[in-house]
Design a protein around this nucleic acid. Structure first.
Lengths: 136, 136
DNA sequence: TGCTATTGTTGTTGCGTATAACAATCCAGA
DNA sequence: TCTGGATTGTTATACGCAACAACAATAGCA
């Protein structure tokens, strides 16, 4: 059967992204978090007191969609909110969050290493620069 | 604000894929089709009488999810089904489908070219080989 | 012939994202 | 200082895509 989309960068990009996303989702399931949860936790860890809106802008997540996401993390006892002023609230890791984020981070780091290791050596250094040109 | 995921290939891959997917979705909207519709149409065009199951296997789409997809294309008058035997049916482009697929294909080709053009020259030839290693 | 695998299908669920709207609050310019 | 526009968090709703379980009908092989 003939594949009309072999050698098409956009198609290849979508397929590769889908495969890697599925794998990371699987690995993070052991920690009870989704990819987007882990991403947000890492951002909050690195930027304490960041605001929900600012976080949404950085990750390209609509403000409205941050609501259930943060609620989930708060219900899981991983993050805390503290009012900054009358309308903004700063996000930070809770005690429990600080305890569990390192393992999540380690899982992500291991995944990233494994991903990179699958790319033939001669192409490896070009991977991130090429992708960066498509969205940064 | 510090981004904890800069230089992470998996994260970069997801972001680049998302950006490109959004752009292609936009471009294909002019033709009234989604990305997955266009992909299926191209496959059927290159493989007349292909079966729904075989198509699903090639594109990693569950058999069950092919049903509404093909129904949409059939309702739009773009494809036709012809029984192969008692349980399989061959898919092919309809008259209308053959008329409209070339423009859709041209849109995709233009998109792929534009995508590639955004990647700095020294990284360009490494793009597809690197991605292929992640899913093929 | 009989058993297993395959095909198309239905129904349901979950996840991620998009849009519109709203009240409360802020901030900067007149 | 006042005020109008922008921002923040939130609700509700919808869409697109993928996953799973189950089923009847059929095909193909032992």
């Amino acid at each position: 059967m003939h594949d009309p989309l072999v050698k098409h960068p956009g198609y290849t990009l979508r397929r590769a992204s889908g495969a890697m996303t599925a794998e990371l989702t699987q690995r993070l399931a052991d920690h009870g978090v989704r990819i987007v949860d882990a991403t947000v936790l890492l951002w909050i860890s690195e930027n304490p007191q960041v605001t929900a809106s600012a976080l949404g802008r950085a990750l390209d997540i609509q403000r409205a969609n941050m609501v259930p996401l943060l609620k989930r993390l708060e219900d899981a006892g991983l993050i805390e909110r503290a009012p900054i002023d009358g309308k903004s609230q700063g996000l930070s890791l809770s005690e429990e969050g600080r305890k569990r984020v390192p393992a999540i981070e380690a899982t992500i780091e291991a995944f990233e290493q494994d991903l990179l290791a699958r790319i033939p050596l001669q192409h490896r250094e070009h991977f991130i620069p090429a992708l960066d040109a498509l969205w940064r």
